[in-house]
Structures are given as C-alpha cells and as structure tokens.
Design a binder for these strands. Structure first.
Lengths: 209, 209
DNA sequence: ATAACAAAGTTAGATGCAGTAACATAGGGA
DNA sequence: TCCCTATGTTACTGCATCTAACTTTGTTAT
C-alpha cells in the first residue's frame, strides 16, 4: 500500500469514501457542461449517490464548496504555468511567454471554472486561503519577469511589467472564451503574439549581454 | 407635453407605469450592492411594489431580464467610449487611449454589471441582439485604430492591433475590479499606461507625417 | 358610447434548491 | 467493550422560479 492509498484510507474512514473529493469532481463537470452557475448541491449529491444533505458534512454551504473548487483550480493553473515555464531556458523571454500560454490554455480548456475563479466577488470569497493562492500564482509571473531582467521581484519596474503582462494575458483568455476573438487562432499565432508582447514589455529591461 | 412625456405616456398605458424600466433599474442597484448573482426577480418585484408574478409580463424569465440588463449596459459602455474618444483630436493616439480609459472606468463604476456582461455564457445569452451590440462596441476600438493608422477597419493589421488593445484593456478592467491590482492607481498613472500601450501597439503603424 | 380586445396586473400553487435539526450508523480509541 | 466522532440519513422550513387562471384597465372598432 503506497502513500496515496494510505492517505485515501485515512480520509475515507467508512461509508462513501472521500465524498468531498467526489463532489468536487462532479461539480467541476457540471460547471463545464452547464456553465458557471449551472450546478446545485442537490444535483451534485444526486450524481454522487448520496442524500441532498450529505454535502453539508463536508462544506458549510454552497459558497464553501465553490471556494474549494476555485482553490483546486488555482493550484492546477499554477502547476501548468510552472510546467510550461520550465520547458524553456530559465530567465528567457520564452519562459515568460510559456507562462502566458499556459494561462490562456487553461482558460480555454476549463472556461467554466476559469470564469468562476475570476467571477468570485469579495463577498463570496470567504476562504482566506484564496487570496494567498492568487498571489502565489501571480508570483510565478513576477519571478519569471524578475529572472529575465536580472532584477528582484520587488523591483517596481518588474512589478509594473508583470502587471501589464498579466492584464494582457488575462484579457486574452477572457476574450478567447467569450468567442469575442475569432479564435481558435493557430497555436503559432498565439505564441507569436505572446512573444511579441513579452519582447515589447520586458525586452527593454533585459540587460544587454 | 414634450416628446419624452408623450413617449412615456405611450409606454405607460395604465397601472404601474413602465414597470419594465423600473425593474431594470432596481435590479441594477441590487447587482451593484449584492454582486452579480445577488438579485432575484422576487426581490426586485417586492422593491417595485408589485407581485412576484408581475415581472413575467415583461420578461419571459430571469435570463431574459439579464439580457435586457446587459443590453442596456452595452449601450451605456459604448456611449461612454465614444464620449471619451471625442474629447481628443480625431485619429490621435489620445483618442484610442480615451476609449480604453472609458472602458476601465465603466468597469470600476459598475463592477457588478461589468462582470455580468462578460460572465454571460452562450447558453445564457439568448438575446440575438447582444452579439451585435458587442461587435458595435468593439467597432469603436476598431475604427479608432483604423483612423489613427490611415487604414480601413477591415485591414488585418488594424484588426490585430485592436484585438491586442482590447485584450489589454479588458484584462486591466478585470484585474482592477478584482483588486488584483493595487489600484486605485492615480488617474495619471492609468493614463500613462494606456498611452504607452497605444504608442507601443499602434504607434508602429502610424504613417510618418 | 359601448362592447370587445389586449395589456398588465393579481392570487394560488407546483417544483426545486439551500440550509437545518434530529436521528442513525460505522470505525477508532480509551 | 463502550463511547465518541465522523459521516451519513430523513424530514422539514423558507425562498425563488415559473405557470395557470382570473381581474382590472386602457384602447379600438363599431
């Protein structure tokens, strides 16, 4: 029995077996098929084969489940950004573009969750963990820019660059899933655009070798 | 009796008096105070002083009202963009930046509605009028870029520029209302950033005078 | 003028979801 | 073994969407 099974066994003392994770999975599917608001705890419970009251043993309310969902998504998004970044030489503009590419791809593959992540207003984002996760995600961008420009992450120029890049990529992601852009642009066009932006925005800060 | 009153009288045959517009107004307030999903037809009806079934005489369902709300907002947004554009010389980069400024300001002033506008998925956007309004709004950006670059609006370079600018401004607006940016940046900083982008993106296409 | 019609409102009720309370059961530890 | 806690259950309340059937009021045709 490996670590995964041991942990699963720990969290699955009896009865259903990790209902919490199962619910999150089911809701994720519902969100992608029916839209960000196209789910209900009741429906999720039904699909999980439990009573409609069962979810409340794992989530205090609908919003709590939403927060869990978004927290998961943040982790997945950040992981993808890091993976894509590491496909390129450290401290390169390609690495920065890779982070952006991962961001847009995530939005296209999971538009429902993506909308949820950034549609959550302060009132709904009760989980104090979320802001930290959000900052960590932005931190990936920040560090990539810092590395490429041989500056520290708290440098105002770095921060400014990172914000601009993020805004662009964020907007690109939204427009893309709203079909406001005539995407699917080819991946090549996407990549070219992202590289252009990286060059244009952080290029001027890169020290001449 | 002026034209406005005559028209109002025409649309207000009896009873309540333009309940439709009243409901839209009330829901707009609810959305801004309680968040994009923080409203119900029932609550709106209550505040309008009518029964909970009354709204269904004016909107086929909740979604229909949402579409009306968003359609209104699109018109207001476009109007603001045009007003801001016209504060600057025609065909200038300042005019382009003005359009972006109006966009971001709108998002900051009506974040609830703004989220609603771009959170509406295809499934929900039943009104066939919405895509047209969206295109018209983007058309303002497109035309501004075309004018500044002495090209036609169907030119691929113009289209590309406009898309990039829009993505950036769109992302800026979202990050700004999500408090992901440490805004309120001063209006001067905002303006400087927008002008930088306009120069960087469309500048290269501007014919040397 | 008035009768018929259409528009805009009403009440009552069906259905469905969120959330709570009280009860049931299974596993783990004293 | 017995109890305690975690995780289920059923039953219920309250609120929202939406429909059906009826009522009221303004318009329009005769």
């Amino acid at each position: 029995m490996d670590d995964t099974d041991q942990e699963a066994a720990k969290r699955r003392p009896y009865h259903h077996g990790d209902l919490r994770a199962h619910l999150l999975r089911v809701v994720r599917e519902l969100v992608e098929t029916n839209g960000p608001d196209g789910f209900s705890l009741a429906e999720a419970a039904r699909r999980a084969g439990v009573s409609t009251a069962a979810p409340y043993k794992h989530f205090s309310d609908r919003n709590d489940l939403l927060n869990g969902l978004v927290a998961d998504a943040m982790d997945r998004l950040r992981a993808r950004m890091v993976v894509e970044r590491d496909k390129h030489p450290a401290a390169s503009l390609e690495a920065i573009s890779g982070v952006g590419k991962a961001y847009v791809e995530f939005a296209r593959e999971e538009p429902g969750i993506f909308r949820l992540m950034f549609g959550l207003t302060e009132g709904q984002a009760s989980d104090p963990l979320l802001p930290k996760k959000g900052e960590a995600t932005f931190g990936v961008v920040l560090n990539a820019v810092a590395a490429s420009t041989a500056r520290t992450a708290d440098n105002p120029d770095v921060s400014r660059c990172a914000h601009i890049l993020w805004a662009f990529v964020h907007g690109l992601a939204f427009l893309s899933i709203d079909r406001k852009l005539k995407v699917p642009q080819s991946p090549e066009e996407d990549w070219a655009m992202l590289m252009d932006m990286a060059k244009g925005i952080v290029g001027p800060l890169v020290p001449k070798a």
